[in-house]
Simulated assay, not measured.
Amino acid sequence: MLNKQQANGKAIGAACRHSGRALEDCFSRNPKVAKSDIFAGWKEMNEYMLAKKMDVVPSSAEDCGPDPEDKKKAAPEQHNTSAASEPAKDGE
């Protein structure tokens, strides 16, 4: 019998596979969940989908907003303008 953490990991893995997400992406999006549990759920769902000839159902959650990494890329870099406006001193 699975404990709650294992069952949660398997559910996450199955959902990742069903939505067409790569296993590595699933691991990186869920760092606190045991990789073995995620893999077990992903593998079970993969076998089920192949047996039933099911297609991937893309997640609509990806359309909800930008990835936090995208925000970092989109934000303009901030430079310290006070240091840039001072002339360089000899010897520094």
Rank of each mutant, 00 (worst) to 15 (best):
M54R: 13
S36M: 12
P66M: 11
A14C: 04
K89R: 10
N3A: 02
G13T: 04
G41E: 08
D25Q: 14
C16I: 04
E86S: 12
N3S: 08
Q78Y: 02
Q6V: 03
P66H: 08
Q6R: 15
G41T: 07
K72T: 05
A11W: 00
V57T: 14
G91F: 01
K71N: 04
S36A: 14
K52L: 09
S19Y: 07
N46W: 04
R21S: 10
K32G: 07
P31S: 03
M1W: 08
G20L: 05
P31D: 02
K43V: 03
D90F: 13
C16E: 06
A7Q: 14
N3V: 03
A74L: 14
A83H: 07
V56D: 03
S85F: 03
S28W: 08
L2D: 14
A83L: 15
P31Y: 01
P68K: 10
M1G: 13
A15V: 04
K72S: 07
P87K: 13
K89C: 01
G41K: 08
R17S: 01
G65Y: 08
Q6C: 05
Q78C: 02
E62V: 12
A75F: 00
P87E: 08
S19Q: 11
K89L: 14
S85H: 03
A15C: 02
K53C: 03
D70F: 07
S60A: 11
G91Y: 03
F27N: 10
G20Y: 00
K89E: 12
D37K: 02
N8T: 08
H18C: 00
Q5C: 01
